[in-house]
Amino acid sequence: MAEGSAAALWNLAGRRLGARRAVRVALTVLALIVLVALVGPRFSPWGFDSLDWQHLAQPPSTVAAHWFGSDRLGRDLFVRTLYGVRLSLLISVLATLVSLVIGVAWGAVAGFSGPRTDGFMMRIVDVLYALPYLFIVIILSSLFARGSLTVLLVTLGAVGWLTTARIVRGQTVSLKRREFIEAARALGLTEGAILVRHLLPNLLGPVLVYATLTVPQMILFESFLSFLGLGVQEPQASLGNLIYVGAQEMQSAPWMLIVPAAFIVALLVCLNVLGDALRDALDPREY
């Protein structure tokens, strides 16, 4: 892919995005959360698994530097929440990348091939779609180490790529009938070169939008698995298992639920606003 085309795409999209206030707010909040998640724990005297027997289940206060309070075991919620944000973001971004790589390759090849290969490849996707994913997750996590990061990534990626493949395949089918693809063939490009030089760059827009909207889905999904006890395990903290513990203590220690929940809501809202705006900015009708 040529740098020039990518630059133009980004310039155009960037200009349109910058023009919207909601986007600027969302980007600022997102950057703040990531920044705090990265450097915040350094300012706290506590580690994510260190116990403070003097202050069990303490509400947020400046006493003993438990700014967001502590949990039943006296672990500092400020540090644990920020570690949770890190882990949740890491897992969701990686899982999105995994699902993009597989999904784009699968969908583009299926859409660009003849009807027979296309049909075969997409029926595989249909079959995988039909399998109850929770069941697969339970099997995977009982076969391998429970809460292993790799297993979690594989699981999330395995579920995520199916939708990506369908979206990419649909785009590819409509793109390959366009005259510029025919023109490339008349120029004597090989099918592979057409795929790489003409199809993928044109797929970039929709895929990017989809990716931005997938990251929050992955955060939610990871939280859901952790909530069920299938994801990240104690004493590791993710937003999901923090919320799980917080939900059990909701009546006696509401901050244990409110703090991680506030972070997940902020993340989801920002990412969704960004994804929607990106979709509008890259809308081909606006060219």
Binding site: L9, F180, E182, A183, H198, N202, P284, Y287
Partner: peptide, 15 residues
């Protein structure tokens, strides 16, 4: 070959 719709026959992502 040259085509009917000049815009559609050019790859919009290329200079």
């Amino acid at each position: 070959i040259i085509f009917q719709d000049p815009l559609a026959s050019l790859d919009g992502r290329q200079r």
